[in-house]
Computed example of a mutant assay.
Amino acid sequence: MPTTQHHNSTERRTVRIPGSQDHSGHHPITVTLRWACPTCGGPRGEIRPAISYDGSRQLACDGWTNPCGHLDTYAAVRVEARHHDNG
């Protein structure tokens, strides 16, 4: 089996995400996450530059699309990071 099909469930990656739902006066925060989909445990997607919109402001941050199709929201990632003391 090619190594690209293997998933290291202990891999961790650091990403920049919005620090809150409302970007007013906020900057991205940096969190380190276990690089596995919280729904199915498969790998999270490759990190790419992204723009988050709060309805009136834009914030440059990181984004990814999970190959499994499960959605990672920034709100859920903030909770995950707090829960695992990764903030």
Rank of each mutant, 00 (worst) to 15 (best):
R16F: 03
H23T: 12
P2S: 15
G45V: 01
T73M: 10
T30I: 12
N8S: 07
T10Q: 13
P18R: 11
S56V: 11
G41N: 05
G19E: 10
P18H: 12
S9D: 03
T39C: 01
V31Y: 02
A50T: 09
A50Y: 14
T73V: 07
V79L: 15
T73A: 10
V15T: 06
A36V: 03
R82N: 05
V77W: 08
A75S: 11
P18T: 11
M1C: 10
H70F: 11
H6V: 04
H27P: 00
D62N: 14
A76R: 08
T39L: 03
W64Y: 14
D22W: 13
H27D: 12
G25E: 09
Q58M: 14
R57P: 01
R16C: 02
T10S: 13
P49Q: 14
D62A: 08
C37V: 01
T14H: 08
G87I: 02
A76M: 09
G45K: 04
C68F: 06
V79F: 14
I17Q: 01
H7E: 00
Q58N: 12
I29G: 02
P2G: 11
G55W: 14
C68W: 04
L71R: 12
T65F: 06
G45E: 03
I29A: 04
C68R: 05
T3K: 15
G55R: 13
I47Y: 05
Q5A: 07
R12K: 15
R34D: 00
Q21I: 10
A36H: 01
R44K: 13
I29C: 05
C37L: 04
T4Q: 11
A75L: 08
N86Q: 13
P28D: 09
T32W: 09
C68M: 06
I29S: 04
T39R: 06
V15A: 12
E80Y: 05
R57K: 13
A81S: 11
I17G: 01
Y74Q: 03
S20P: 02
L59P: 03
N8V: 01
G41E: 06
G41H: 10
T14L: 07
P38D: 02
D54Y: 14
T3N: 13
Q5T: 06
I51H: 04
G69Q: 10
N8T: 01
T32C: 08
E80D: 11
N86I: 00
G41M: 08
I51T: 15
P49N: 14
V31N: 03
T4V: 09
Y74M: 03
T10F: 09
D22P: 01
I47G: 02
E80Q: 10
S56W: 15
H83M: 05
R16H: 07
W35Q: 00
L33T: 02
P67L: 06
D22E: 12
D85H: 15
T4S: 13
G63T: 03
I47D: 02
R82F: 03
T10I: 09
G42N: 03
R48S: 11
R34C: 01
H26S: 08
I29F: 05
P28N: 06
D62E: 07
H70Q: 08
T73Q: 10
H7Y: 05
T4F: 15
P18M: 11
G41S: 07
A50F: 13
T3D: 12
G41A: 07
P43I: 00
D22Q: 12
